[in-house]
Design a binder for these strands. Sequence first.
DNA 1: CATGAATGAGCTTTCATTCAT
DNA 2: CATGAATGAAAGCTCATTCAT
Lengths: 189, 189, 189, 189
Amino acid sequence: MNVKKKIVEQSIQLFEMKGFSETSIQDIVEALGVTKGTFYYYFDSKEQLLKDIHLTYIDDLLKLQEQIIGNSDMNYKTKLFETVKLLITQIKVTGRPARVFHREMMHLKPESVSMVKQKRKMFRLNMQKIIESGIESGEFRKDLRADLVTFAILGMCNWSYNWFDPNGPVTDEELVKTYMETLLNGISS
Amino acid sequence: MNVKKKIVEQSIQLFEMKGFSETSIQDIVEALGVTKGTFYYYFDSKEQLLKDIHLTYIDDLLKLQEQIIGNSDMNYKTKLFETVKLLITQIKVTGRPARVFHREMMHLKPESVSMVKQKRKMFRLNMQKIIESGIESGEFRKDLRADLVTFAILGMCNWSYNWFDPNGPVTDEELVKTYMETLLNGISS
Amino acid sequence: MNVKKKIVEQSIQLFEMKGFSETSIQDIVEALGVTKGTFYYYFDSKEQLLKDIHLTYIDDLLKLQEQIIGNSDMNYKTKLFETVKLLITQIKVTGRPARVFHREMMHLKPESVSMVKQKRKMFRLNMQKIIESGIESGEFRKDLRADLVTFAILGMCNWSYNWFDPNGPVTDEELVKTYMETLLNGISS
Amino acid sequence: MNVKKKIVEQSIQLFEMKGFSETSIQDIVEALGVTKGTFYYYFDSKEQLLKDIHLTYIDDLLKLQEQIIGNSDMNYKTKLFETVKLLITQIKVTGRPARVFHREMMHLKPESVSMVKQKRKMFRLNMQKIIESGIESGEFRKDLRADLVTFAILGMCNWSYNWFDPNGPVTDEELVKTYMETLLNGISS
DNA sequence: CATGAATGAGCTTTCATTCAT
DNA sequence: CATGAATGAAAGCTCATTCAT
């Protein structure tokens, strides 16, 4: 595997464990057995590395979301299900970058922040569109505020990065099913 | 107001804006017009200040939660409603510490972390208890996994610190009502 | 003597010997037996130190020039003589800062440069004024270009920082006398 | 044009603008669209490049000076005139290397410095010889100190690199004429 | 109670240089 | 001839912390 990729992966691991500010370039290169010079051969700055991580992550999410949205075989409930599954499963596959993604955005430069925020917003609006279409199609209740419901679902899913351990007693599939069931039918008896 | 309190409040403001690591003691004392010596008269370290902030915050939450739980006039739906309201409204009242609370825990020393985590866990388990009691009493569906539902609700509420602006078009009361309605009855038509 | 002053003097010595870029903060503080922290307690940056040196130097020159200009007992030839003497003698008194002053201006930030340049220009224009007044009074030839003559004199004097050793065989007084004599009467037989 | 020459010219331009220390090899090769390897194919070090620039410059000057000295058609006043013209005009033709030449000598290694200094000294002594011969021939005043007068003239000329803009209102020919006139006849009325 | 001087360890970054290909 | 990857030493600077007063 090439060095740049190794740096990215090692960084993600360290950022996730110790936080961005607490991770020094020294930490990263030492863990890889290279020198600081090597780091700066591949990256202009520590911030740029973080930006790369963020953009890669959100771009991947957006690409997978597109596949869900573009699939005309699914109804809107299924599309929502797949979206929730996407967010939760991402933890299993790429647990670490997810946590970095949700925590360290503040350390980006203003310009990088706005770039990332814009893409995150796009993801959210795509989700909202699914809700809105589902309302129109009659799959969801007519009286919903699609924007707030979207925020609620995103919160539910994203928060799980804080506690969900894919190797723990609850599987990711179980979690997705439970969340969707709760979401669709409510908890009231 | 005494100096210690001023330091805490100024710190919260700065931590919220720039992050814990990016805020220097110099920043804090300069903003207050005192010197570093003064800071170290009141606090042993920067970490201890953060610990104080965290403990004050979670202790306040726990105290308010106790009042909800101990109130025998409420049924469990109402208790859950009040809990959600407590979490969301906290943003309006104390928006800044909330964000600091949810972001900067990693900068605490291991011992401080475990102290805070334990109290956070207590808050969560108290919530879970409300769900479980509501299931027993027949207010909530019998087939719920109380633990996962609790995580879902916590995620929904806590995530709102990321986007909810109490001075924006949506009021906190509106948000609480919408969230509870969605939660209780689901989105399925 | 206080530490800040010591830092300035040590820096001047090192800048003069090795040049600004080649002198590290480490070099400066090591020579003084203090630490880098101490340096940055007194100065915001290396550049600011250089700016301080430049401004102190040119401000001193301007103050002394003022005394010459304001002295109504002198005719213009004498005033010019005193100005030349001022520039040459400065080497003897403050040899090192002079060389730093004439060499390292490029390492200042643009804003600092313009501040220093403005004051240098003022010195030059004051000199030019002496020439112009001397022309009017009949002490100097009517057909002189005061601006170019001023540049010529400045060059003559300032260049001496490149070779003149006040402890060498030629004394500063001798040099001033010779330069003035050459300047006033020319070399043509 | 060959690559080595391009490197030299680009370097001169950059050294003149930003200074030797502030110009990195990266800057140089990037401006030329080649790589660092290429640079080190042609030059052993950054210092060697600077040495090359210095030696080329002073060797050129010496060669031109020789032509002046060897021309038996000129009297000594004319020879001095031509020398002054040589120094001033060099700015117009090769403004940049001139400034580099007069500023960055300190960045050479001691051995290179002494080589350059020796040649500079030779130029100066050649000039001094002109003055001395002119004194003997009766063209210049008998009571001159040829050594100090030479320094004065050199200062006058070389200093002009600090302010003279060949594209400004004063032409180089005008400057040379004015300087020589002042020098020969003095400013006294 | 509070100050201001000083520390020292560590940080991000730069850069001349080397070298296998 | 030329490249691109890698090095390693050093640079400027930050900052939590200490302590005599």
